[in-house]
Each structure stands twice: as structure tokens, then as C-alpha cells.
């Protein structure tokens, strides 16, 4: 039997891991198969841990807040401070509920006006890699969530579901480097593709050289990609660079503030025959 010294064994393992991963990568490129068993198992397990850790952090923040507010308390005014602490806690609770209710109310106000069937979801985890712009939501296949379903908030399009396993789903933002959406300007109906730049902005590509685009034009989804429905606000044009007669770079600032996402709506079913009028955030 072949015996390897530790140096060669380590090199052989390195070669095996590198080749194994290259084979794994090449096996997935170009296939549109559903999530693999490995992916499903890993995602289901770690998503549970992520949800638990987010819950734990929420609790710790509450405890820390309580500790900070109680520092320096003297024994003789303990009763007053106790009352004060309780009131502060109530105030914090009320503020947190008000903030949550505000975002929830915005979604609820938006929901009856939407021409699509939607499911509300809460964000439970952020991105696990700086190369990926997205979040994890607490709704999964059991709630009817499938891959490629669009995610919206009152301000506009957030992104799409790229993976749904167990009781959670991974959402890719429209600003992610590998994200793309068919779009058009609301004013002139100039069509193209919005691609994520990975730095929080998007770029408007495949624009016709004769297209009429101006700074501050609202860019909305055109529905041509079969993922996003027509009319979701994507963002506004903030920069136009020309190279001769064609466009060199058209930059879009997203309509959604991705750093403040806590609740979102997942569009689970397409528009009925005659949709009602949309709200202000959703231009149609």
C-alpha cells in the first residue's frame, strides 16, 4: 500500500480539495436543477442557528440596555430608579413596537393595492459573505415560497428569492453583482437591463444609443425577464456618461434602502385579469 509522508499527504489533500471543488463548481454551472441535498441540509441547519442568534442578540441588547440605564444607581433611590427603568423599558418597547408597526402598516397599506398575491416575511439574517448582497427571510417552501419569486417593499423592488429551503429563503438584492432585472424608464419607456454593481448601485445596460434618458428618471421593471412584474420601482438615474453617440455608463440609485429592511412582501402569484390602482411606491 502507498504510504505518504505528512508533507506529501498535506499536498495530496490540497490537490484533492481544490480539484473536488472545481469539479463541484463545473457540475453546477449551466444546470437549473433545484437545491442539492448538501445545500438543503446546510442551509436548513444554519438558518435555524442564524434565527436563534438574531433572537439572542435582541435579548442581549435588551439586557445591556437595562444594565446601562441602571449604572450608578444609589441604594436610597432604588425604588424611583426601578420605576424609571420600568418606564424606560416600556418606552423602548413602545418605540420598538411603533417602529415595527410603522413598517408593517406601510406593508399592510400597500398590500390591498397590489395586483399580486403576496406573503409577508421578516428578515432574520444578513448576508454571510461580502460578495453577496442579500438577506434571509423567515418564509420558505412551506409558505409557498419558490425560487425566482420577487420581493417588494412600499419603496419598490428588493430582489428575488434565489434559494428556498426548510422554513426560510435567501433573497438576492437587485444590487448584487450577479443580479439582473429587465427595466425601462417610466418617462420615456427606454428599455434595458439593470445590473447590480455590488457597491449598492445598479447600472443601466443594453440601452439603445438613441434612447431618451435623463438624470432623475424613474426606472421601473418592464416584466420582460419573467421574474419581476411590470411597474416595480427599481431606482432613479443619478449619472449618465456618454462615449461618443452611445451610453458608456448609466448609474441607477436604488429606490429601496437595503440597510433598513425588516419586513418584506413576497409576490407568490401573478396579477389577476383587472388589477386595482397601485400605491405611490409602485409605479405602473
Amino acid at each position: 500500500m502507498l504510504r505518504l509522508d505528512p508533507d506529501n499527504r498535506a499536498r495530496a489533500l490540497l490537490a484533492a480539495v481544490v480539484v473536488g471543488q472545481l469539479l463541484l463548481v463545473s457540475a453546477q454551472v449551466g444546470t437549473h436543477a433545484g437545491p442539492s441535498v448538501l445545500r438543503t441540509a446546510v442551509a436548513s441547519t444554519v438558518t435555524g442557528l442564524q434565527e436563534a442568534s438574531w433572537f439572542l442578540v435582541g435579548g442581549l441588547r435588551g439586557i445591556f440596555g437595562g444594565y446601562v440605564s441602571l449604572r450608578g444607581v444609589r441604594a436610597d433611590n432604588a425604588r424611583l430608579m426601578q420605576e424609571n427603568r420600568e418606564l424606560k423599558a416600556q418606552l423602548q418597547e413602545a418605540r420598538a413596537s411603533a417602529a415595527g408597526a410603522e413598517s408593517m402598516r406601510a406593508l399592510l397599506e400597500m398590500r390591498p393595492h397590489l395586483p399580486w398575491r403576496t406573503v409577508g416575511a421578516t428578515v432574520i439574517a444578513g448576508s454571510v459573505s461580502p460578495d453577496f448582497r442579500g438577506v434571509t427571510i423567515d418564509r420558505g417552501p412551506a409558505d409557498g415560497i419558490r425560487t425566482d419569486m420577487p420581493i417588494v417593499v412600499p419603496a419598490g423592488a428588493v430582489g428575488r428569492v434565489v434559494q428556498a429551503t426548510g422554513g426560510a429563503a435567501t433573497v438576492q438584492f437587485v444590487t448584487d453583482r450577479s443580479a439582473a432585472a429587465a427595466v425601462r424608464t417610466e418617462r420615456s419607456l427606454a428599455e434595458g437591463i439593470a445590473l447590480g454593481n455590488g457597491d449598492g448601485t445598479l447600472r443601466f445596460e443594453y440601452l439603445s444609443a438613441t434612447a431618451d434618458v435623463q438624470t432623475d428618471d424613474l426606472v421601473v421593471t418592464s416584466g420582460l425577464d419573467g421574474v419581476y412584474p411590470v411597474g416595480l420601482a427599481v431606482g432613479r438615474i443619478v449619472g449618465i456618461e456618454r462615449a461618443g453617440t452611445s451610453f458608456a455608463r448609466v448609474t441607477i440609485k436604488p429606490a429601496v434602502d437595503f440597510s433598513r429592511l425588516d419586513t418584506v412582501l413576497v409576490i407568490v402569484a401573478p396579477a389577476p385579469a383587472q388589477p386595482p390602482a397601485p400605491p405611490a411606491g409602485v409605479a405602473r
Partner: peptide, 21 residues
Amino acid sequence: GMLQDALSGGILGLSGLGKSL
């Protein structure tokens, strides 16, 4: 790397390759 790929819905092994090296 595999965990990152699995949780971000990306291609498994893409992040793992660089991190293994």
C-alpha cells in the same frame, strides 16, 4: 466557503476554493 455558498444560494465551491488555498 461551502457554508457561505450554501447560505447565499451561490454555486457551491466558488467561495471555498479561495478559502481552502
